[in-house]
């Protein structure tokens, strides 16, 4: 296996965010949130893991919403394929008060914008989303194309079995 093939496989196998990546992303999200007057914004990877969020998440179970949003988006992608589209890049669920707008960022991340229809409109949210998605897609492409890990993830562990025993000790 050549080096480039190894790189490709590694990139495909993991998504790594460093602190400065998240800082850049959060700054862009906060700016977008101010402009769109949305309640909160989350970035979720297509597997349903939350990446980061800004805004008021009070009363929102982030992990559950991330899993459901990712599933919803994945299901919609299949619907798009059936209709001959590669994908639907955005998806809106509109409620009486709270609504959620989902937008694909790059290939592997979903932007979920929760907004209150008393505060802003779907048009306003979509208008500002376009610019943000382009900006974030650039950041994510940079993250995905990073060749080497800047640092190891785990501190040295002597014995994985005892680590697992400790973890599950009170489960």
């Amino acid at each position: 296996m050549g080096a480039s093939e190894t790189d490709r496989k590694l990139r495909k196998a993991r998504l790594i965010f460093y602190e400065d990546d998240v800082e850049r992303i959060n700054k862009a999200l906060e700016n977008y949130q101010n402009l769109s007057k949305s309640r909160c914004n989350m970035l979720i990877d297509v597997e349903g893991h939350p990446v980061t969020q800004v805004g008021s998440t009070e009363g929102i179970n982030l992990e559950t919403i991330a899993a459901l949003v990712a599933a919803s988006f994945a299901a919609t992608k299949e619907v798009a394929k059936i209709l001959g589209e590669a994908e639907f890049s955005s998806l809106t669920h509109q409620g009486k008060h709270e609504s959620i707008q989902l937008s694909l960022v790059g290939e592997r991340t979903i932007l979920a914008t929760i907004f209150d229809s008393e505060e802003t409109t779907i048009g306003m949210v979509m208008f500002y989303t376009k610019e943000l998605v382009e900006k974030l897609a650039g950041i994510f492409a940079e993250i995905a194309n990073r060749k080497d890990l800047k640092q190891g993830v785990f501190e040295p562990m002597e014995d994985m079995e005892s680590v697992i025993d400790d973890l599950f000790g009170d489960v």
């Binding site: 965010f17 602190e19 998240v22 597997e47 349903g48 893991h49 939350p50 990446v51 980061t52």
Partner: peptide, 15 residues
Amino acid sequence: MVQINFAKREINCKL
């Protein structure tokens, strides 16, 4: 796909 988030010092895995 594992997600490693150094900002949160967090690893997310899907089983």
